[in-house]
Design a protein around this nucleic acid. Structure first.
Lengths: 135, 135
DNA sequence: AAATTTCACTTGCATAATGCAATTATTTAC
DNA sequence: GTAAATAATTGCATTATGCAAGTGAAATTT
């Protein structure tokens, strides 16, 4: 538990992972523009830390040398179960403060495995387009 | 997600909850003696924060005026699903660094609901002895 | 009853992390 | 060539953390 929390137990790390897992934000600038307003230095540090931990990796953007496309490794994708439980808990106990977006709300009523497979499929499709397609 | 992480997204909070949920540490001094070595000021702060968030509460120890018995509310107990997923993820992906204690290892092979019910039953028995018994 | 110990904190202070704004280097667009 | 976009980095103020020591009340020992 403590070792896992060394990696994912801070305010911003799981938000970066959420961007990659659910929101289709694969670029630095997309994550920087997120509604929570992460600072550029924090984002930069978290991306490096997550890369070092083997949770994310990246390829060069096919249209630009300077842009990078970040995406989750399987180690990162497996965090979906934790993410889902956090969302379920927040929905149940913080429902006055929390609004789960409608387009993802139905996830909460699905079995975890179904959600995981849906997410995995979506990420695989993205990878096929941007990673598989460019190699 | 962000709101939940404001509460539980830090290094020590989930460790305090783990103490209350799995390790039967219900007193300040028990948590302070934990193997991770939390500082007294940090522990004090986290207990207050968790109490303020409605995740834990406490009663006076039946044998002493100064001692307190902390325990989880239902809001706190429901974090068991997140805790279990964190443990599963760590076991799968950090297995070189992580040793799951043998006396709790079998939890990883059980369905989440079974684990939750086991934990809930154990906590209810504790509460019946220390809370119900003293009122 | 006086002295000691236990307990749940609190305080002081050094170090580290965070947050914001501005800057930099490189790449792309015009 | 000039200007804009991108992925960072730097400087600096504020905040959080970590350690050691201290505090005051309650319990225990003598």
């Amino acid at each position: 538990m403590a070792c896992a929390l060394d990696i994912i137990g801070d305010h911003w790390t799981l938000l970066v992972i959420r961007d990659l897992m659910f929101l289709g934000r694969h670029e630095y600038k997309d994550m920087l523009a997120g509604e929570e307003g992460i600072s550029s230095n924090i984002l930069s540090g978290r991306l490096k830390k997550l890369e070092g931990a083997g949770i994310i990796t990246f390829v060069q953007h096919p249209e630009s040398k300077r842009r990078k496309l970040y995406y989750l490794t399987q180690k990162g994708k497996d965090l979906v179960y934790i993410m889902l439980d956090v969302a379920r808990w927040a929905d149940k106990h913080l429902d006055d403060k929390v609004v789960i977006p409608e387009d993802r709300r139905f996830f909460l009523d699905m079995p975890a495995e179904t959600v995981a497979n849906t997410v995995f499929d979506k990420l695989a499709a993205w990878e096929k387009e941007f990673i598989g397609g460019s190699l």
